[in-house]
Write a protein that binds this DNA or RNA. Structure first.
Lengths: 212, 212
DNA sequence: CAGAATAAAGCAATTGATTACTTTCTTTCA
DNA sequence: TGAAAGAAAGTAATCAATTGCTTTATTCTG
């Protein structure tokens, strides 16, 4: 008495649609699985395709990873930078950027795994290059904002901006790793303000600010 | 005209010796290769054994990873904590601990890959549990030192010690990731002081310290 | 606008390579 | 001499990629 599977009239899609659906499926799957153990069969299942059909839309697995890295880079920078650019004061922009980044990760828990996973592999594959460039661009953005803050007189003048940018990214990574250790990615957004408050103290003017 | 391999008089070793040699080989190999792609054949080659002979000393690959995680945990905590305990003032202990950690990583570049790789995989395998507990213990140590520093009057009293501990680990991770991005693990020790100086500013007393 | 022709998208099955682990037999050495 | 340690070959499973063929969609033509 085999239960007949739904006839499931097979419907064809353009490669363009399949590609984006596949990329999002990978990002989704990385939230619950180590990227290194992700098989084409598992991805195909998530998209609703046979394993072999995946190769009608991507020439090979590496190119798929490349596309995923590109998608992540695009989404991260556009969402985070846009939030920063909405503020005139550099210190406020940095804060907004910090929270936007945390929010982005909380919504896509697989992304740290993805990026760290790429950085893990040595060599200079295309996907790794994309991640590397994204992080470099991000760091430059932070350095620029810090410098702007100094010019605006809202950030201590003597600050080591390069180091502050590394610490900025480290603060986020610390949050992420703490989330991976505790397993609670949801609590990220809750803890983030405490971390940023502390971080921002490291470059605040030492003057006793009368207001507040 | 096959060139005869060196006769290589085969010499037998105790499992105990082989185990530690294998563990160190894995740590060594992780410096140049993604742990997820490390095969038993590659490990055996590094140790100087046939692939099958490895299983005379470890029942399976998972147990090997477990042993590696244990070794890393033991080495890291013993070396880093020992350095911290040599100082009476908590702030100095934190600084020494920071540099000891960075030095440890610089000497074993594979270890961040190892620990991050373990944290990546979901579930609660034994190896991941060890890494998790190690990080948790580390965090507690930092919180304890921060609290001690407050009691000693060397650290601002109002500080959020939990957040400061997360930021402490984040500072190290920021350094590590920056090293993975730039590919220069050697420059870690050079950059570390700049990062720590900034980090420590976040919990320094705001009083204008006349000395120095 | 019907319908043939062509291209695109799909499945099921298979291939070849890789990998963790086993088995069989040999060598060492306490 | 017997147990531990090793090599070498083998095994079953897994996985990315391919192949052969079918089905759907699009384009061309009269």
């Amino acid at each position: 008495m085999a239960i007949a599977k739904a006839p499931d009239k097979r419907t064809y899609q353009s490669t363009e649609l399949r590609q984006s659906a596949t990329i999002e499926a990978v990002v989704q799957l990385c939230a619950e699985q180590d990227p290194a153990t992700l098989t084409t069969a598992r991805i195909a299942e998530e998209v609703g395709l046979s394993q072999g059909a995946l190769f009608k839309h991507f020439p090979n697995k590496n190119r798929l990873w490349e596309s995923v890295a590109g998608w992540v880079s695009e989404q991260l920078t556009s969402q985070v930078f846009r939030e920063a650019d909405r503020h005139e004061h550099a210190d406020q922009a940095l804060e907004a950027m910090f929270f936007a980044h945390v929010r982005f990760i909380a919504r896509h828990p697989g992304i740290p795994r993805l990026m760290l996973g790429e950085l893990q592999k040595p060599g200079n594959g295309p996907a790794k290059t994309i991640v590397r460039q994204t992080l470099a661009r991000y760091r430059k953005k932070v350095v620029g904002l810090l410098q702007l803050g100094i010019d605006q007189g809202r950030i201590a003048a003597g600050i080591d901006t390069e180091a502050a940018a590394v610490l900025y990214l480290g603060a986020i990574q610390g949050l992420v790793v703490q989330g991976m250790v505790s397993g609670e990615i949801a609590s990220l957004e809750q803890t983030a303000p405490r971390i940023f408050k502390l971080y921002s103290a490291s470059f605040q003017e030492m003057t006793n600010d009368p207001e507040k």
